[in-house]
């Protein structure tokens, strides 16, 4: 029975990383479709996000089944709880990616005011870094990598605010509707980054068993982070080869920032947790 639980836990963790990697890939595709006005690609992304949702729901069901049938404790229980919460965040991120794809379908043919597309590409690059580092923290069970996530998310928020500054400077002959759609895509990217940081917060409980956030850990030294770690169960390390393989599907992104966004002087508070959403379908 113990071996059966081990196998299922390892499989769940692998599938979680696979779904995360697929989400990252689809975000790249969605941004490509938006920047190159590729409606066909956008349609494929939409279909792919629906598949991500289905896979994610299956994963959640398997996690609940294990809780009910196997009565897990300690790291087994924490891993299952982690998977359930991360699934929730994956579904939200998937919805945001889908909305970016819809933006492509609706914005195509409009002329996006100068500079906004470049700004969007820069923002996407920053978000790829957050997603990539989140997956790395999960794969390596690395609290230290996770604690970097809020810092990586900061330039996302700053650049997002810059969109508002750019928007406010548009001239009357600029295509305001096209600019609004790019703004919406930027909003989705910013939310994806926040959701990924939230996954990092969940990783804190998985690795330490403590209900603390990444912000709480910012001032701690690496040795102090090590001391916080709870006893590690095999569930967190089994099937590592497959997990690494799944994570390697994620396109590499340089950690250096592609742009030096200037802090905004006005704009919304990027920490607002409201859910912008297009009508689905």
């Amino acid at each position: 029975m113990r071996e059966q639980l081990d196998r299922e836990l390892a499989s769940l963790r692998q599938d979680l990383v696979k779904i995360y990697a697929e989400l990252d890939l689809q975000l790249h595709e969605a941004m490509e479709s938006l920047i190159h006005e590729d409606k066909e690609k956008a349609k494929k992304v939409r279909r792919a996000t629906h598949k991500i949702d289905q896979e994610s729901m299956k994963l959640e069901e398997r996690a609940y089944n294990l809780i009910v049938l196997q009565n897990p404790y300690a790291s087994d229980l924490r891993l299952l709880q982690f998977i359930i919460y991360v699934n929730f965040n994956i579904q939200r991120m998937s919805n945001h990616v889908r909305n970016i794809a819809k933006t492509t379908e609706r914005a195509a043919g409009h002329k996006v005011p100068g500079g906004m597309c470049d700004l969007l590409a820069s923002l996407a690059h920053l978000v790829y870094r957050v997603l990539g580092e989140t997956v790395r923290a999960i794969v390596e069970n690395d609290l230290s990598t996770a604690t970097n996530l809020p810092e990586l998310d900061e330039p996302v928020d700053e650049l997002y605010r810059t969109f508002f500054k750019t928007f406010s400077k548009l001239k009357t002959n600029d295509d305001i509707e096209a600019a609004s759609r790019v703004m919406m895509a930027a909003r989705m990217l910013e939310r994806i980054s926040d959701n990924s940081v939230e996954v990092g917060n969940r990783l804190v409980f998985l690795l330490t068993g403590r209900r603390e956030t990444l912000d709480d850990l910012q001032e701690l030294e690496p040795e102090e982070l090590d001391d916080m770690q709870a006893a590690q169960g095999l569930a967190l390390t089994m099937g590592q080869k497959e997990v690494v393989k799944a994570a390697n599907q994620i396109p590499e992104v340089e950690l250096a920032s592609p742009t030096s966004p200037r802090p905004a002087t006005s704009g919304p508070d990027a920490e607002d947790d409201d859910e912008d959403d297009y009508d689905d379908e």
């Binding site: 404790y73 300690a74 790291s75 229980l77 924490r78 330490t208 068993g209 403590r210 709870a230 006893a231 590690q232 169960g233």
Partner: peptide, 11 residues
Amino acid sequence: FSAPQDQRTED
């Protein structure tokens, strides 16, 4: 039960 400190307890 949720986060033992000692590896032997966890096991």
